[in-house]
Design a protein around this nucleic acid. Structure first.
Lengths: 234, 234
DNA sequence: TCACAAACGAGAGCACTGCTCTCGCGGATA
DNA sequence: TATCCGCGAGAGCAGTGCTCTCGTTTGTGA
């Protein structure tokens, strides 16, 4: 704490937090499209111009919300994993470590649950990029929490390798190097397929693409999560 | 032709088409977020209020564009399939019918190519639902073209069945009945997993979720399409 | 062929938006 | 203690979606 300097800075951070909280509240009622700085300022009982002392533009506010959303989703996923590792989750082996497959399924379910309970924040991060372009640098780190967790679980489960082409192999080798992943490129490729599938179902469910077929999507989601666990070899 | 009545109606349809075309042109430069009725009307050299004679609101214009986009993507997919069935696509058996697996891969590639070449239209249909809620009735029919085509290919390939739970089975049985699908529910479930994965990768590629790992995504896309073809048993 | 009604485009106007700029106030800093 | 700098208020600009009114055009039914 207090690593920064003055008390003024702390007040400033606190106000910025209040702005984000109020904006998040508006998000659930209006959606990202209808989030208005002026409406937020009105709710806060403050002049609209005051907000610009804290966020240079509406897109910057959205970017801050995006980062928070990535972090919240990552935290939810990691929490679910650690719970099941402690044996509190269902179908964990009470005598020892949880099976990687159970961890995998628990994380998938946790991600979906978070998405369903925070649909507008999910839209913010996995829907169309609303601003011109999100600032890439600030968002990548929090965005990797879920895929990195899935990769870690896959590593614990010794997932099966795949033969992959030269180009993909070199791309993934670099990813493996940068993130200290202990998985052959072919196995990482399979994890990534499962990862994209996971967010594919969730997006389809939330964005209404499943209405004519598998909606409500609980059963289909469970089926697909299990199918992808099989696919990666857990 | 002329199934409707008057010449006035035809003129009206023509103007509506011009508005949509101009709006689509704005879409590629500004994106869905920045599409402005007034800007479109200015490009058309017309008062902004005139557009409201043709589309009751901005969201209605967007809905019209959404329907067109679904249709264009469906047409692209169907075109790719019929090309390869005629033996013009690559790796088709020159002596007979194209293999279902080749048809499957061709359709996946065609969908991705269309999405890359029409990224803003893709965002419109597979990104966050921008309007309050899209009118479901008008959009479902065109939206089913791609999944129905994938299902047809899977039927030709006799994909493997899966055992699925009771709830999902009854949901999918109803889908099978309504669309005259000749596939057991467990097989349809696998196709749907592949379907969600397909749009998961494409969305990740277009929305920048792959930047740190598999971007450019050509090789990863081919890998995942092949993997899902394996998964459904083609 | 003609009169009428319906459809049309123009323009003004309303309420709203993001964003900028200037102005005083007041607490933290030197 | 004197000063400076961060702060919020308020006015204002350009732009938006949308509505309403008002002449004009135009197709159509008699």
């Amino acid at each position: 704490m207090n690593a920064g300097r003055t008390a003024r800075d702390r007040a400033r951070a606190e106000v910025a937090q209040e702005i984000k909280d109020e904006a998040r509240r508006h998000l659930v009622t209006e959606g990202a499209h209808g989030l208005s700085l002026r409406a937020v300022s009105r709710s806060l009982g403050v002049a609209s111009s005051a907000l610009y002392r804290y966020f240079p533009s509406r897109d910057d506010l959205l970017t801050a919300l995006i980062i928070d959303a990535y972090d919240a989703m990552g935290a939810a996923a990691e929490h679910a994993d650690s719970e099941i590792r402690k044996g509190r989750g269902k179908s964990a082996d009470s005598t020892g470590e949880a099976e990687p497959r159970d961890r995998w399924l628990a994380v998938c379910r946790a991600v979906r649950t978070w998405a369903v309970n925070h649909r507008h924040e999910y839209e913010l991060i996995y829907g169309s990029p609303v601003p011109g372009y999100e600032a890439p640098k600030d968002t990548v780190a929090p965005a990797t929490r879920v895929p990195l967790l899935l990769t870690a679980i896959a590593t614990a489960g010794k997932v099966e390798d795949s033969s992959i082409g030269h180009g993909l192999r070199s791309q993934l080798s670099s990813v493996i190097g940068m993130n200290s992943i202990d998985l052959p490129p072919g196995a990482l490729a399979r994890v990534m397929v499962a990862w994209t599938q996971l967010f594919g179902v969730i997006s389809f469910e939330l964005f209404g693409q499943l209405v004519g077929s598998a909606d409500p999507a609980d059963d289909f989601f469970d089926f697909s999560a299990a199918a992808m666990a099989d696919f990666v070899g857990l």
